[in-house]
Design a protein around this nucleic acid. Structure first.
Lengths: 215, 215
DNA sequence: GTAGTCATGTAAGAGGTTACATGATTAG
DNA sequence: CTAATCATGTAACCTCTTACATGACTAC
């Protein structure tokens, strides 16, 4: 949000719309997170609000980054980040494919492929848009920064999206690999644990009491 | 956890150790999450605990999956998953490289490269270990399942790790691309916004209240 | 007038991190 | 005897999701 506000002062609503649009590819946030966070940052002095009237009785708060906010943004940019622990549902489910059916596996892998393929298209479009400076937020930022910096600013955005493209291509390759594998196993007649009828009591050998509630 | 417990009944501590070991690559969880979750699952009837003595006065709880737990595992395996909204710090920081220094960018990209490269090596080792059935948990599961299923069980684990390998390779390629880019920009003498001294008041045009820290 | 957009919140709850906390058992 | 390992928790806090909620403004 600090970085976005360096392009130009705006309302929380403007930020919400950016987070619903192109920014969502880089970082997602719902409005229920954005508004409280703006208040918090204001209290910390990183941003400043100006209340301006809109219409007859309503007002809106336009936030601008403060020098302290710029300091914080710089500090953040120079800070190292930690890569979070692994927690990827698609991989987890893949590891236990045998507990479902071949059709379920195919459905999931196709959805995975489609999802990343759609993202890939959007990432590619965005890289093109960046190259032709066809992104409003980027354009605004270039307007207020000296031309010497333009190459670095554009290169950074482009590079970030390149990361998504690499990722998306990897996911698509993986899903294709999986679909092939599923076909191979099924046509070889390999049975799945999830389809077997001996698993229900493989452990305790007994116990058939009540309802299994959903989580 | 349900899937792990299908291999054999075990204590929470055993699960904690698995989650500190090979399982961590697929899904990470600290013991502070595992113990309460086991209690919850027990209350729901998905697993069952047997208190067994250990030593003179201590006891431990050995958890076994129930038929209801197996149902739940199957249900989960057949359920579609949702790919969560984007929230990747490395990409976010990449998009705003210009707010830091070239050295900071290089440091982050090198750390990124190293991190994924180390993971890649571990993933490769794990795939080899899977191929040679050299993973204790996998071996235990194969022991209790009919041989006809073995190919599917092994293939699933292998496939999951293949996904990590694809991902890691993509991240490494991306980081290399970034390091090249940083070198190119710096040697071309492109200035960065974060190094400029005109940014502190580019927005408000005035306001010089706080101490201006040196970065 | 009314539908869509502008604008801004609150709150419960799930999931995860980090720290605090304890004590028994076993191998040397 | 002592250190490592076995074993099991609790709690504060943070982030994010989902749902609930409200009302003014503007274009038709």
């Amino acid at each position: 949000m600090l970085a976005i506000l360096t392009a130009e002062p705006m309302t929380g609503y403007d930020l919400v719309r950016y987070f619903d649009g192109s920014v969502a590819f880089v970082w997602s946030a719902p409005h229920s997170q954005i508004y409280p966070e703006l208040r918090r940052m204001e209290a910390e002095g990183l941003i400043e609000a100006t209340e301006v009237p809109r219409g007859q009785k309503a007002t809106k708060r336009i936030y601008a980054i403060t020098p302290e906010g710029v300091d914080e943004l710089r500090r953040w940019a120079n800070d190292a980040y930690r890569i979070p622990p692994e927690r990827d549902t698609s991989r987890l489910k893949a590891a236990y494919i045998e507990w479902g059916s071949y059709d379920a596996a195919r459905r999931q892998l196709r959805a995975h492929r489609n999802h990343w393929n759609e993202l890939l298209n959007q990432y590619n479009d965005l890289v093109d848009a960046i190259d032709s400076r066809d992104v409003p937020l980027l354009r605004r930022r270039l307007e207020i920064r000296p031309e010497a910096e333009h190459d670095a600013i554009v290169a950074a955005k482009r590079f970030a999206y390149r990361g998504f493209i690499h990722r998306a291509e990897a996911e698509i390759r993986w899903a294709d690999e999986g679909l092939e594998l599923v076909d191979k196993l099924e046509s070889a007649g390999v049975p799945l644990t999830g389809q077997a009828d001996d698993v229900r009591d493989s452990q305790t050998g007994s116990r058939r009491r009540g309802r299994a509630r959903k989580s």
